[in-house]
């Protein structure tokens, strides 16, 4: 599916907008009973979208997973990001790679939630704040 920057197409005729106007062209508009209409067999396929929020086990699991990832990547707290994970592994030395990385992440998460609660809803959605977090954290550590 193409994502079109939401500008108004001149006359709405551009092919980029076809997906969005499809249902208007096919389902609305004047119908005159003295005319026949072409068969629309198979057209339903066009109306199916990937972003389906239906109640199913798969959806639940997908959303649970999405929540799990959410704050790790772009939560209110600075998440470690890859370079720092490597750093904490070297620090923890003998404790073993996976354990070090995992507990580090868990700390970050609980910090994140503490902050979120104390910040009484200040943690507005900031979907694009992710890029800088790793580097910022690095600076703080140094």
């Amino acid at each position: 599916m193409t994502v079109v920057p939401a500008q108004q197409g001149g006359g709405g005729g551009g092919s980029s907008g076809l997906y969005d106007v499809l249902e208007l062209v096919l389902d609305r508009g004047l119908v005159i009973d003295a005319f026949v209409r072409v068969s629309l067999v198979g057209i339903e396929i066009l109306k199916i979208d990937v972003r389906v929020v239906v109640a199913s086990v798969d959806t639940y699991l997908r959303f649970a997973e999405a929540c799990n990832r959410l704050d790790l990547e772009s939560g209110p707290n600075k998440s470690p990001g890859l370079p720092d994970v490597v750093g904490s592994i070297t620090e923890s030395g003998a404790r073993g790679k996976s354990k070090g990385a995992l507990s580090g992440a868990a700390e970050t998460i609980s910090d994140a939630f503490k902050q979120a609660r104390e910040g009484d809803g200040q943690s507005e959605s900031r979907p694009r704040a992710r890029k800088s977090t790793a580097s910022r954290r690095k600076e703080e550590q140094e």
Binding site: R51, F63, A64, A66, C67, N68, L70, D71, S74, A105, A106, I109, S110, F113, A116, R117, G121, S123, E124, S125, R126, P127
Partner: peptide, 24 residues
Amino acid sequence: EEAVLHRVMSDNPDVRAMTEANRK
């Protein structure tokens, strides 16, 4: 999706708590 999940998280302490518990 990401933005709305943030929103849901910040609006809903139960969801936050359970996410946290699951992660732990």
